[in-house]
Structure formats: C-alpha cells, structure tokens
Amino acid sequence: MTGHGRSRLGGAFAGVGLAAFVDEVVFHQLLHWHHFYDKASSEAGLVSDGIFHAFGWAAMVAGVFLFADLRRRGSLVKPAWWSGFCLGLGGFQLYDGTFQHKALELHQIRYDVDLTPYDWTWNSVAVLFLLVGVVLLVRTRRRR
C-alpha cells in the first residue's frame, strides 16, 4: 500500500475512533440518552457501551500507530490522512444513524421525543464530513 493509501487508512481509523468516542462520552455517558444496545436491561446496555468504547479505542490506537509509523518513515501524506479522517468519521456516523438506529433499531439518539430534528442533524453532519473527505480525496489524487 502506498503512502497515500496508508495515510488515508490511518486517518479513517482515527476518524472512526473519534466518532465512536464522542458518541460514547457525550450521548451515552454525559447525556444518558441511550446505550449502544437498548433492547435489554440497563446492565446489558452498559456492557454493550463498554464493548463499543473498546472498539472505538482500538480504532483510534490503530490510527495513531499508523500515523506515527508514516511520520517515522517520512511517507505521511497529510491531505490523504485528513481525507481518510473525514471519511471515517462521516462514514461511521452515517452508518450509525441509518443502519444501527433505523435498520437494526439497536438504539435511537433519544427517546420520548420527535426524532426528526435529531436524525436530520446527525445524518447531515455525517454527510458533511463525507463530502469534505471526498473533496480532499479528489484533491490529493489530482496532486499525484
């Protein structure tokens, strides 16, 4: 894999890790809006949050290790890394908002409220990150 591809992959891992971290800390722990899995007891929800947190942490560690290795080798391509970061963050958030929230119904953003503004905001932010990632991807490919 080239420096561009590895940079993009490292950024994608870091983007997924950050999206999972913010989701877990803000919506699960601070606001108490939901757990990763809300179809069972609170204890099961807490266990699912722990597994989700470990997944996000592992993604971030992988992204940081790739970033450090690329810098050490002198092959880090920062625009490609940022492209991967935005694509990873936006892709994970859109996957969460559509597949996990709607298709699998693992949880919702909030309960006992009209979900429309929450869903639109959540998925619009995801699409915005994806668009920025695609623009950066196209720009880095043109420069090569």
Results as ranks from 00 to 15, higher is better:
F27N: 09
D49W: 07
G74R: 03
G56H: 06
L137E: 13
W82E: 04
T98P: 07
T140F: 05
D114R: 03
Q93E: 07
F13W: 06
K102Q: 14
G84S: 05
D49E: 03
Y95G: 07
V77H: 02
Y118R: 03
R142P: 06
K39S: 14
F13H: 06
V22N: 11
A44I: 06
W81A: 03
H101Y: 00
A44P: 06
W122I: 01
V134P: 08
L131P: 03
E24S: 15
F65A: 15
G15P: 00
H32A: 13
Q29W: 06
F65W: 14
G5T: 11
W82Y: 06
G63V: 03
D114K: 02
A40F: 13
L89H: 08
V26W: 08
T140V: 14
V132I: 15
Y95S: 04
S41A: 03
R142Q: 14
L104M: 02
H28W: 01
S48T: 04
S7F: 04
G133L: 11
L131R: 12
R142H: 07
D49C: 06
R6S: 04
A58Q: 00
G17P: 02
D114E: 08
L131Q: 10
L94F: 09
L136K: 00
L94N: 01
V134H: 10
L70Y: 01
H101N: 01
V25T: 08
L18H: 06
R110Y: 13
G88N: 02
A54F: 14
M1E: 05
Q108R: 15
A59K: 05
E105G: 07
L130E: 11
L137D: 15
K102I: 15
K39H: 11
F13D: 03
V77A: 07
L66S: 05
W81I: 05
L106A: 13
D23S: 04
A126C: 08
I109Y: 11
T140K: 11
W33T: 12
H4Y: 15
W82N: 06
G3K: 01
F21P: 01
G97E: 02
L31M: 07
A126R: 02
P117H: 02
E24F: 14
L70I: 08
T2N: 09
G74K: 02
R141C: 04
S83R: 04
K102H: 15
G5N: 09
V138Q: 03
C86W: 06
S83M: 02
A19M: 02
S7A: 01
L130H: 09
L18Y: 00
T140D: 12
L31P: 06
G10V: 09
A40C: 05
V127P: 12
L30H: 12
C86Q: 14
W81H: 01
R6W: 13
H32W: 08
T121Y: 08
V77G: 07
F92R: 04
L76P: 00
F36W: 06
G17N: 09
Q93M: 04
Y37M: 10
D49V: 03
A14W: 07
F129M: 05
D96Q: 09
G84L: 04
G45L: 02
W122A: 04
V113K: 12
R142I: 03
M60A: 10
A80M: 00
Y111F: 11
L66M: 12
V125D: 05
H35A: 06
F36P: 00
H35V: 12
D114Y: 05
R142T: 14
K78F: 13
L136T: 08
V125K: 11
